[in-house]
Structure formats: structure tokens, C-alpha cells
Design a protein around this nucleic acid. Structure first.
Lengths: 224, 224
DNA sequence: CGGTGTGTTGAGGCACATCAAGCCAGGTGG
DNA sequence: CCACCTGGCTTGATGTGCCTCAACACACCG
């Protein structure tokens, strides 16, 4: 499963992107904005290091986090002339701007790039469909399990028995999974009590039983 | 709001699509399959008349309807080499196949078509994000109201005081909105009792108070 | 030292799911 | 023509998972 939504996996096309020519590199401190809803779209951003969150604020004050993006991901895709939601850094983050103009120019010169991007976009639509399916159907603990599993997959190296970064706060997780912070907290504690994960300190977690975590993340497992 | 997900609004690019050259036209009876999950992708389909549903069946038997598509929409977008979910007709439906190969050829010849498609794809991703947000956050009656509003918007002509088609059964609506058929039924009756809509017969509905329907559909309205 | 922000834990309520029965229209066979 | 069946829809009673409100624990910081 892929929880990231506006984040395009860049592995498939790193060379292509590299060929477009990079704009400037920006350094962001925690909670510095990358762009705001309504800003004119200047292009995409490739996350070089760190992490960002993309979210939408509703008139009634509610917030929905649409995606987290990490090193290697690209954000700013899927907007029209203006960005459709806010995006800011979770931690100290370096991003490289990819101006829209240079992407369009590159596409004009090499049409196969357009195909590739279209393919990626298609995959992204499919991922979003999966995401909405899962968020719509899963219970709280299943969502948490899925989320932690995805977060674990983001880090290179062994998944289990090792401190893994969890750079976002409970409120961010809650607003991403469509839960409240209390429910997130309770179910994290529950997973800890079940000896599936460990929570050594703020900002980190450890997977102790990857199989049971996977089992919990599936729909089949314990949907009565 | 746009509830349709894999359905690309074709208005923006009818001419472009027309220029690609049409494949064969197929006629489907109710519940005839257009394609099945796992089938090799042959291309897109433009719905000429009628309606289709796209859905995914889970190992545990649950079903999530991902999108409904109507005349003028295009389905089959956002898949890789094989289709990611099932798609079949709700009513008698005519579709025109747009082979992948001819689309790619056209894109090679006219790169601006690629940009256009990419733009559409981007918009589609954004729509999906909106959809998951709304499905994640809204109450049952808000989901129903949103759904009916979208369905009303699909028909040409006046929105209100007129029988509008509702070609899918309660189970389809439920599986689309992430509810049970009982909850769908109860809230439809509730909207009827509130004199916001009318339910004259199976397969049709009437909007009686479009303003209150809109109000209910927003998140702000009555999210306590 | 108190202040603040983040996370945890507990008690109670509510919205929706579940289980179950009944309604209604259309179809079939006697 | 009526009796019966069937499938889609509605309605009711009950249960439960998550939200809400509230208090508390803990780290960090002035």
C-alpha cells in the first residue's frame, strides 16, 4: 500500500527529472511553508532530505492532511494554476524546485517523457483510489498499522528491531488518518501493549512484530 | 465537488480525443462487464450513453465502488499494464474504445496533447484527494447529500423540480459512500421527510430544495 | 518555579453497523 | 385472476467503535 498521495515515486524517472534541469535548492526549517493554498503554481519540488506535509484547511477549521512526502518524493503535482492546499516542512528539509516551464519544454522536446509522466500520474490516481478505499473501510487500529507499516517502508535498511523516524506529531497522524489524537494515542499504546511495536521516545518507533503489524493492516484480518 | 474519480471530464478536450481516432463501439446490457481486474489494458473507453460503475472486490468479500461514470466521461484511465479494478454497466450502455496505441501515437505527434492530458490527470488526482477527504470526514447524511448533488449535476437541464435518474441501486450507493444500505435508505428517507428531495419511484429522484441540499453537502453545515 | 505544548488515559455519548422483520413491485405458475 | 415467490427497499431494536470532554503526566523552556 502507498499512503503518499501527491508524492510521486521518483525512482522510475530520476534520470528524466535530472535531465530537465534543476532550479534552485531551498532550505526549510520545521513548519516553514513550501507553498500555500491559492499561490500560483511555479512548478514541482523534489524533496532532497527531510519531510513535508500537504494539507487542506476547511472553512470550519478542520484540517485534512493529504500526504506526507519524504526524500526522493516530488510534491506540487496535481494542481492547476494555483496550489490546492498548503504544504510545509515537518523537519529541517531541503527541496529542489523544478520550474513548470522547464518541464513543459522538456516534454515538448521528448514526448516519451510525457508518456512516462502520464503513466506516473495514472499510478498516482490509482494509489489515491486505494487510499480512499482503505481510509473509508478500515478501523482505527488498522489505519494506524497501515500507516506505521508505510512509515517503516520509507526508511532504508531493516524494518524491524530498529528505531525508525516518525517525524510528525499525533495531531498530524490523526488528521491524516481521519481520526482524533486520542484515538491515535490509544491505539498506538494498544499496539505497544500487544508487543507489536515499541515507542521509545517522541519522534521514533520500533517494529517488534512485522508479521502481526502486516496482519493488522490488511482489511481481512479483523474486520468482523 | 466531483465524486467521479476515474472519470475524466471530457469537455475540456473533446476535440483532442476526437482527433485521436475512435476504435470500435460496444453495446453493453445492465451488469455486462466492460473490463475485469487483472485484464490487460487495451486503452480507454469513452461512455457515449448510459452509465458504468468501477469497483474493487476485497479478499474478505467487501466491495468498494471507486467511481460511477456517465455519458461524456472516460474510464480506463489510471491503470498500468492491467486494469486495477472491475468495471461494468449499470444500464444499457454504449462505449467507444480508444486504443492505447493511437493515444500514444497522437501524443508523439502533438506534444501539447500530452500537456493537456497531464493537466487532466493532475486535476483527477486533486479530485481524488477531495473525495477521500470528504468520505473520511463527512457524516452519512452529508455524504448522501453530496452524492445526490453530484448526480443532479450530471444531468443537463434544470436541477430542481424534475425527475432525475439514479441508475444505481442502494447497495451501489452504499459501497460507493462507505456506508451500509440501511444507512443509505434511512438518510434518503430522512431527506425526503425534510422535504429536501422526493423519491417518486425506483431509479429516480427529485430535488425539491437545492439550497438546503447544498448546505447539507458542505462540511461546515452541521458538523457539530 | 510555573507555563506551555504534546501525549496519555478515563468516562460517557452518539452515529453508524448489525441483526431482524416487514413492505412493495414485478414475475411466474396454477 | 389470484397465490406465491423473489429481490430491492424500508423500518425497528440493539450493539459498538470512535468522538467528545476532561483530567493528568511529562518534557522543555523562560
Amino acid at each position: 500500500m502507498q499512503l503518499s498521495t501527491i508524492a510521486l515515486a521518483v525512482e522510475t524517472q530520476t534520470s528524466a527529472m535530472g535531465a530537465i534541469g534543476s532550479g534552485g535548492v531551498r532550505l526549510l526549517s520545521p513548519y516553514d511553508p513550501l507553498f500555500r493554498e491559492g499561490d500560483e503554481t511555479t512548478g514541482f519540488y523534489e524533496i532532497l532530505s527531510g519531510a513535508v506535509r500537504a494539507y487542506k484547511i476547511f472553512p470550519d477549521g478542520r484540517r485534512q492532511i493529504v500526504a506526507f512526502a519524504f526524500a526522493g518524493d516530488i510534491v506540487g503535482f496535481g494542481h492547476g494554476d494555483t496550489y490546492r492546499f498548503d504544504c510545509d516542512a515537518l523537519t529541517t528539509t531541503r527541496v529542489r524546485a523544478i520550474p513548470k516551464s522547464s518541464l513543459l519544454r522538456a516534454m515538448r522536446e521528448r514526448p516519451e517523457l510525457g508518456e512516462k509522466l502520464l503513466e506516473v500520474a495514472g499510478g498516482e490516481v490509482a494509489n489515491m483510489q486505494d487510499l480512499s478505499i482503505l481510509l473509508c473501510r478500515k478501523t482505527a487500529i488498522e489505519r494506524i498499522a497501515s500507516f506505521l507499516l508505510t512509515m517503516a517502508g520509507k526508511s532504508a535498511g531493516p524494518l524491524t528491531g530498529r528505531q525508525l523516524p516518525l517525524p510528525m506529531c499525533r495531531a498530524d497522524i490523526a488528521d491524516y488518518l481521519g481520526l482524533t489524537i486520542e484515538t491515535v494515542s490509544r491505539n498506538m499504546t494498544r499496539l505497544k501493549a500487544m508487543r507489536v511495536i515499541d515507542l521509545p521516545n517522541r519522534g521514533n518507533f520500533v517494529v517488534r512484530d512485522i508479521d502481526r503489524l502486516r496482519l493488522l493492516a490488511q482489511c481481512e484480518g479483523n474486520m468482523h
